[in-house]
Design a protein around this nucleic acid. Sequence first.
DNA 1: CCCCTTACTGAGCACTTGTAAAGTAATAGG
DNA 2: CCTATTACTTTACAAGTGCTCAGTAAGGGG
Lengths: 221, 221
Amino acid sequence: MARHDRTRLPAPERRRQIITAATRLVAERGFWGLSMQDVAAACGLTVPGLLHHVGSKDGLLIAILEHRDAEDARALTELLDGPAPTLPELCAAVVRRNAGQPEIVRLFAVLQAESLTPDHPAHDYFVARQQRILQELTALAKDAIGADASGADIVGADVGGAPEVLARRIIALMDGVQLQWLRSPGSDLNQLWAATAGDLLRPTMIPNGSGSPGHHNRSGS
Amino acid sequence: MARHDRTRLPAPERRRQIITAATRLVAERGFWGLSMQDVAAACGLTVPGLLHHVGSKDGLLIAILEHRDAEDARALTELLDGPAPTLPELCAAVVRRNAGQPEIVRLFAVLQAESLTPDHPAHDYFVARQQRILQELTALAKDAIGADASGADIVGADVGGAPEVLARRIIALMDGVQLQWLRSPGSDLNQLWAATAGDLLRPTMIPNGSGSPGHHNRSGS
DNA sequence: CCCCTTACTGAGCACTTGTAAAGTAATAGG
DNA sequence: CCTATTACTTTACAAGTGCTCAGTAAGGGG
């Protein structure tokens, strides 16, 4: 059990390793199902050795989430460093990114469901996250709708008056599609999203002009 | 700990009590986070007493899921005993029912996420369930599209050719909306669903004419 | 009445859980 | 080279895990 390899690592590096390993394990078993022993073993050190870096099991989860926040913020600002992105652009970017990291998507799917209980250590985190995402998307949706407020709606369906509703719909659809994607191992998230939800945003989704606004012809799958 | 009340119950009744208690606990903590001790305590008996009825922890989960299957089948056939339901009718019925039992919805949300891992005891169950629901909805979607194949599509958005896509979209949307609903305690699922996804099916959704299409007032958060 | 089925308890097994305290050794700075 | 920091181990603990086995007592059928 106890590794005598004595490969002593500097703190930040070991921390990164820990977070990486723990992320995978939490995505598989959830937080309640996570054992510090498994994480420690995956990193080649003992449990107290692990605790030296993260303090406690809750501390480990917090570390994971903070790391993800930082990572996502970095990747997102890099991915959208151009001018202010439109709503469809942002959706496309997010989907494209998520398609490449199923483990991360699963991490959030599992944790999001698990943390519905108020006494889950990540409960507050996910409440705040949900609220933040909803606000951001609502703002973008307002732009998307307002830009085309002339008459024909830019989105494929009736929005119902509030851009918040459009934001909620997008969030719900993405969560649901991602769940389906994760459950069918062979599938591609990009395809699944484009087929299932693409035409809700299609008109402005493709910058280069093949898609003329107004009508979208029903294309084969 | 050990109850001396000696309230001895007949097997089916105790089983029902166990399943009810366990359902609530699994919905809160997931299956990995569930402890037999908690279930036993909630039923006022000891752990071996509980094991006498369900055999093992996995057996308990199986019992829960089987009970839910039976219960859902019963409620659904009762709710739709009329002629063959259209797709919007079925959606409305499901939503209306789910709105009244958030704990059950949460049970499935948590378990569905947790069981993404193949070694979860409910993995196969949810794979099969997902497949079954998709087939059923696809069949209904085929009818819904075919019935209105004349020109204007019955659904609010481009279907993309395959009724399966419409089914997938509905499933995804419902899963996502339910998640949002569960996370904001005050909200009403009926409203949330109508606002977020209603206009995807609205045209045929309301048989009796009170609801004129076009507007629905915005629901609160 | 008795007896036999059965719902249930008590004790205990062989772990595993997260965490604390104290000691060891590798490394960086002077 | 020496010393202070610190990454890490060993040991230990108290509690909790699912589960087994043998026993007890309640309730229904004869």
